[in-house]
Each structure stands twice: as C-alpha cells, then as structure tokens.
Nucleic acid binder design. Structure first.
Length: 769
RNA sequence: UGCCCUAUAGCUCAAUUGGCAGAGCGCCUGACUCUGGAUCAGGAGGUUCCAGGUUCGAAUCCUGGUAGGGCAACCA
C-alpha cells in the first residue's frame, strides 16, 4: 500500500499541522508531550466528518508519542444526552482509537470554570450585563458598524462578583443577566464585542442535573478546558478561525505559558450527501431514512451497518489530507478505500440479483453435482472452499443474456458459449419467450468435458455467476444508491430545501437467490458477490430474525461504464475562465492628487518606476526610510530591495522595531550594486540584519561572503554539475529546457549562493547548447 | 458594506520554503485472467484564479484585482 502523500523524492509530505508541530518541537515552544483532543458535543451521532477529526487528532498524538483526550463539550443542557455519549464512545473505539483514561467532560469543569470567571471579574475583564438578549443583540452593531457599550459595562468588581454569585445561586430567571467579557465593542471581529461567557438556563443537564442554573458558553468553556487539560494543539474547523483571538485572550489572561494554541482546518464535505448534524437529524426525525444507522447515512453507525470497515474509513481520512481550502470530496474516493480494503477481506460467493432461468437440457433431471469452489480468487493467498451444487435448472443474471448482443459482449446470447463459474461451459440453444415476447427461460447444453479444474483447455470469452434453482436460497438484498440526486444538496434555490434533492431511488429492495453455503451465514463478516459487489449481512435485521444483505459498494465496472456512460455524468469540465483578461492598471491613476504629486516627485528625483513611486507615495514609513537610504546609493535599487525584500521581513510593529538604520540598509544595497555580493547573499545578510541588528559589513566579513564572478572557477562547478547528471543533460538537450532551473539551483547550492547567476547562466547555456 | 480565511490536473492534496510543477483517486489504452474484479504496464489531463512588478530564475516575494467561504445565538 503506497503512501498516497509520498513526494517524488520518496519523502513523506507533511500537512500544515504536522509542520506546525515539527516547528514547535524544534523551537522548544512545546517541550513535553503533544496533547490533542477530540471534543464532540453529545447531541447527535458521529459521522464521517467526525471521523476525519478523530483520525487527525488520534494519529497526530500517536505519531508524536503523545496522547489524545476525548472531551465531551457538554455545556448546553438543552440538546445533550447520554445516548449520544454512548454512540460517540462506541464509534471511536470501533474506528480503532483509544483515549485510555483521558475521558473528560466540560460539565466536570463547571466549578473550575466558575472560579476562572470570578478571576476574570476581579481582573476587571468581565461584567454582569443586565440587558435583555434583544438589547444585547441590538447594541452589538453589525459587521460594518461598531456596537455600543452596555450601560452595565462599568459595574464595580464587587457588584459583578455579587451578581454573578447570585446568578450561580439561582436567584434570577433565565435571561435576567449574563456574564460578558469586557473587550471592545468596536472590534472588527464580532466575536470580540464583549462576548457572552455565561448565561442563566434553568434546565436539567444530562450529567449535572439541576445543580447549575448557569452554563458557560462554548467560547468560554472550550479554550479554558483545553488549558486545564494541558492540550498543546487544539484543532478545529475553519469557521472557528474568528474565535481564535478570543481563545487567545481568555487563555492569556487566565493561564501561564505553556498554553494551548488553536489551529483550524477545513471540514469534510462529500459529494451527494449532507454532513450537518441538523440536517442528519431532520432526515431521521422526518422518517426519510430508517434512523441514525440507516445504511444510506454517512454516520459511522450507518456505514458500519452498510459494511464499511473501520480500516477503510481511516484510510479514506488519511487519503483526503488536511488543508484549509473548502472542499467537496468525490464519493469515488470513499468507494475506492472500501473496495481496496475489502478486496482481500471478503470471501467470494455467488448470488443472482435479477434471476433468469436456464435449463441445462443435457443435464440429468434430479441430479445434484457438487462442485468445489474456492472462497478466494487466484491472486489472494487465502485458503477455504465450499460446496456449490449444480442442477439441471439454474438461475443466471438477466443482464448476462442478450438476444442481440452488441460487439464485445462477452456473455450469453443465442448460439454462443459462456463458462459457468466453477462449473462448465454452456451453450445457448434456444430462447423461450412469453406472449409479450419477454424472455422467460433459456435452454442450454453443457459440455461435460469442461469442468472447472479438470484441465480442459477450452476457452470462452466470458464467465458468469449462477445459482442452482433447487438448491439456492431466496434472500432479501438492499441495493443502495446515493441519498441525494445532486453533488451538492446544501445548495438550494429560493424556497427549496435540501430535501428536494433527495434521491427517491436511493434504496432498492431486491429478492435474490444466493448459493446455499450462505444460508446460515452470520453477520460480522464481509462477502463479495462475484461480479456484483461487496455485501454485508445487515446486523440490525439479523437481530430481528431477518436476513438482509446490504450492498456496501459495487465492483468497479468498466463494461457497464462503456455501455451506459450517461449513468454517472462526467463532471462538467470548466471551460474558458469567465474572467476577462484585465488591462494593465496604471498605478498612478489610483492615486489621490496629493499622493500623485509625491509620486511624480519621486520619479523625477530618483528615477523610480511608476509602480514603485506610487507605492512609496502612499506609505509614509516606507517613503521616509527610502529617502534616507536613497541619499547614499542607487535609489532604484534601494526601492527594489526595500519594497520586495525588506518589507516581508519586517517585524510586526514595522520600521519602529527595526534594529538598523536606513544608512545601514544603504550600505547593504551598495554591496549588491557594486557586485560584491550576489542577490542570494544579500538576502541572507538582510535576514541576519533583521534578526540581529548587526551591520552588513560585519556580517560579510564574519562569513567571508563574496560573489564569485570568475568564469574559470564557475565553469569548473558547472562542469561538475553537468557531469553528475548526464540523464538530465540529455533531457535538456531533448527540449526539456525547464531543467535550466535545476542546473542553476545545483550550481548555486554548491557555491553556497555565492555564484554570479548571470555568469553561471551564460556558462550553462554555452555548455548545453 | 467591514474584518478574517482560501484559490495548483475532473476531485482531494504535495512541491525540500525562490531552482525539474508531482502523487492518490477518477478517466483512457494494452497485457493477464474461470470475477468485464484484482494485478501489471502505459497514456491523456496544467494560463499554479487574473493583471502587473521584483529576480538570472516566481506556484512561492511585492502591488492591485477577481472568485468562493466564514463572522452580527444567551448553540457548538
């Protein structure tokens, strides 16, 4: 099993969270164990989206030898229930993960959280607001307008403490007061406009009962629970990114370092399904599916019941990766994961889903021939056989016969031959039809010399599955299709709901005939119906005394695809970009009158490009720095190095915090202008200067930096590089000119970035040309 | 309308931090086959969102745009 994320060099590529952790470990920001957590709210059944988070958190902890906590984020008494806690724990275990003794509940932290809230009040960072919910909402402002301060914002610490204690004592009714953080009602971030930390809610909590009349909100409970548990990396989904400043604010004010940090990644979306708990709940409540564990649901219980393996779900989650871009994963990816896993786990048996009767006219009536059939195909090294009875009358798949077959149809048709899997070659002699012309029976002859495994070398194009009519057993089979008709059911027209996209044919119940060896099969093992797909005996139905086979996933079917390409419409290819190619914008045109004059002056005085001039005209700090430095060295070079190289390296407080002067900067630029240093070297020195504040000359002297422009010396290096990579040289001469970058890179690397690139390029072009 | 996040092959993601744009899935060929499965070999598929700029060299740095997503619960 190849690593799906292996880079060509064979090095495993690491997603951005792994890179952050690597960096944290390297820098010493985190010194002990890496501790992650999976923090579900127990208000619904876990689904494939949870699986992504579970796999992420647990594998990260395992990879770094740390641990992952299971914490129930149960701060809302109205929606939560023990049933969901049980489902969550069961499904995480089923997925193959163990939190050991680290099972926590935010509701166990209520006392600590209460104390922390009091501490916040004592620090003057929180207050009791007695406005109504409506008032609070109305004074929060909008995304474009600032909010206004609550009239209760400046209550004394004493008064706040007193009121909060009485809230906790249950003296007030729901909604009478809330506890709010005192941050900034004018913040661009709505979350920072004095967020509500605690509310009064006289509801019974599924674990704490009526003990607490007040409940902390997510924004308060979550970061502090992380801090209490010593979580190092708190991973959540993208929509929480705006919560991060609040997360940091709370943790910073209430805990000492080391403290947890929050990182956000994209949640999973899958084609042809919905993922939100609200929508899944609606499907269940309205009876549109048979329950949380309906096999069409992508809840873990539904998938398990359908026959998905835990390994395949883990594999899927690892395949899709972790990133910050919104996504919608192709269902084919999930199907691949389960097929790939089941391929060597599922015994092969025969089952006819849509039977058509075949009479073997030269097979003795009443006789049963016992054929020995392996449970495993030739390429899977597993043992095991069963008995498959052959009789005069058998069932074959209706699809496996065509009266007027198209080209390349490798199955049965009048006068043609096909092999019965594990049995004999048969030939279709006669087609029996009813009054309407429908095919009812096929009369065939079999060739007794062609028994499977007998060494007969007769070959036919096709092999089909079949079941004895008298020995086979009738069974119920459920064939599942995608629950929704469209790839993105969340996207709906005005006045519609996602329910309008439901696929009415997502469940097809079939009466099938299965070989007798499967008659008393118990659930919990996976089976492939040959040429059909992977099936799983429904454990729920089984418990009720019924035997129903669920189709987990069909086999890849290149024939069906060829015949009916319309079935799965190819995704519309994105044709020409709708965006028209914009005309180059004149940077001067955007400027105000005053700025324009400044820009014109910069051009006249220093010969800057309009682009650089316009840029500097609108930024005072940069312009002042530039003017100072430009007195000493070529202004165009100063502008380039300042705008493109220095600025990205600037400390967050800007020039203010810079540890060297414009004169120092000019000195550095001069070293490039006079060819003393290569641009690569200048960049290195600049980074050093920003970090240490040392002067360029001192750094250059200490490191002994000097650009190499000597052709003889460089030619030697170039020759060495070319000699070391004859294959690439040949490829280059073959037209793969992109390799120039590779050769350049090699030379630059070997010279430690000191080579004069123009000289090197000319040299290489000569030698390769 | 403000702030934040994002944009690389049809889909999901990489790209050693400025040096050959790759992988898995999907698709197409072929080989093999008593599963039209699996396996093996090969192939097609790219305006790295757009336009400028910096650089010997830009997916990566700078400027300006465009598109998608998120944020105004006393939910999480």
């Amino acid at each position: 099993m190849a690593d799906s994320n292996a880079s060509p060099a064979g090095k495993e590529s690491r997603h951005f969270i792994q890179q952050i952790i690597d960096e944290d470990l390297k820098s010493g920001r985190v010194s002990g164990d890496i501790i992650t957590r999976f923090p579900p709210e127990p208000n619904g059944y876990p689904h494939i989206g949870h699986a992504k988070a579970i796999v992420l958190n647990f594998t990260l902890a395992r990879e770094y030898g740390g641990r992952c906590h299971l914490r129930f984020d149960d701060t809302n008494p109205e929606t939560e229930d023990m049933e969901y806690v049980r489902a969550m724990k069961r499904d995480i275990r089923w997925l193959g993960y163990d939190w050991n003794e680290h099972e926590y509940y935010a509701s166990d932290y209520f006392e600590q959280l209460y104390d922390l809230a009091c501490e916040l009040i004592r620090k003057g960072l929180a207050y009791v607001d007695s406005q109504s919910g409506d008032e609070i909402r109305a004074t929060r402002g909008t995304v474009t307008e600032a909010g206004t301060n609550s009239p209760y914002r400046n209550r004394s610490v004493q008064e706040n403490l007193d009121l909060f204690a009485r809230m906790r004592a249950g003296e007030f009714e729901d909604g009478a007061h809330v506890l709010r953080a005192k941050i900034d009602m004018a913040s661009n971030n709505m979350l920072m406009r004095d967020p509500v930390l605690y509310r009064i809610k006289k509801a019974s909590h599924y674990r704490r009962g009526d003990e607490w009349p007040i409940y902390p909100l997510y924004d308060f409970a979550h970061p502090l629970s992380d801090a209490i548990e010593g979580i190092t990396h708190s991973l959540c989904t993208l929509e929480f990114d705006v919560h991060r400043p609040l997360y940091d604010w709370l943790v910073d004010h209430l805990f000492d370092a080391p403290r947890p940090h929050q990182y956000e990644s994209a949640r999973l979306n899958l084609d042809y399904t919905v993922m939100s708990k609200r929508k899944l709940l609606q499907l269940v409540r309205e009876g549109l599916v048979a329950g949380w564990d309906d096999p069409r649901m992508l809840t873990l219980s539904g998938m398990r019941r359908r026959g998905y393996t835990a390994a395949s779900i883990r594999r899927f989650c690892e395949m899709i990766g972790v990133a910050k871009a919104d996504n919608r994963v192709d269902m084919a990816q999930l199907e691949f994961a389960v097929r790939d896993d089941l391929n060597d786990k599922a015994r092969r048996v025969m089952c006819v889903l849509d039977p058509l009767k075949v009479v073997l006219t030269n097979f003795p009536e009443g006789e049963v021939e016992h054929l020995e059939a392996s449970y495993w195909p030739h390429d899977i090294p597993k043992e095991g056989v069963r008995d498959v009875p052959l009789t005069r009358e058998i069932w074959i798949e209706r699809d496996d016969f065509m009266e007027n077959p198209p080209k390349k149809f490798h199955r049965l048709s009048p006068g043609e031959e096909v092999r019965l899997r594990y049995g004999y070659i048969i030939k279709c002699e006669h087609v029996v039809k009813d009054a309407e012309g429908n095919v009812t029976d096929l009369h065939c002859t079999y060739d007794p010399d062609t028994k499977s495994g007998s060494g007969s070398d007769r070959r036919v194009k096709g092999t089909i599955h079949w079941v004895s009519a008298s020995e086979g057993v009738e069974v119920d089979v459920n064939l599942y299709d995608r629950l929704f008709k469209v790839a993105n059911p969340d996207r709906v027209e005005e006045g519609q709901s996602f329910l309008d996209h439901l696929n009415p044919d997502s469940l097809q119940r079939v009466k099938a005939v299965i070989e007798p060896s499967m008659a008393s099969e118990a659930p919990e093992s996976w089976v492939q119906f040959e040429r059909q797909g992977f099936f799983y005996l429904d454990p729920v139905a089984f418990a009720e005394g019924r035997r129903v086979w669920n189709r987990t996933v069909g086999l890849r079917d290149s024939w069906g695809k060829q015949q009916a390409p319309e079935q799965t419409p190819a995704k519309p290819r994105v044709t020409a970009k709708p965006q028209e190619t914009a005309a180059p914008v004149d940077p001067m045109a955007e400027l105000s009158g005053e700025d324009r004059e400044l820009a014109i002056e910069l051009i006249a005085l220093h010969g800057l490009s309009t682009e650089d001039a316009a840029f500097l005209a609108t930024r005072d700090d940069e312009r002042i720095f530039f003017k100072e430095a430009a007195r000493r060295v070529n202004p165009v070079a100063v502008a380039n190095w300042l705008i493109h190289e220095l600025r990205p390296l600037l400390p967050s407080d800007g020039f203010e915090a810079l540890r060297f002067s414009p004169t120092d900067f000019a000195e550095l630029v001069a070293l490039h202008v006079d060819n003393t240093l290569s641009s690569r070297q200048v960049k290195d020195v600049l980074a050093d200067m920003v970090a240490t504040g040392k002067r360029a000359s001192a750094i250059v002297e200490k490191k002994g930096l000097r650009q190499i422009s000597d052709e003889g010396a460089l030619a030697e290096v170039a020759d060495r590089v070319l000699a070391a990579h004859p294959d690439r040289v040949a490829a280059y001469r073959d037209g793969k000119t992109g390799l120039m970058g590779f050769f350049m890179g090699q030379v630059m690397q070997q010279t430690g970035g000191s080579a004069n690139p123009q000289v090197v390029r000319t040299l290489l072009e000569e030698k390769l040309g």
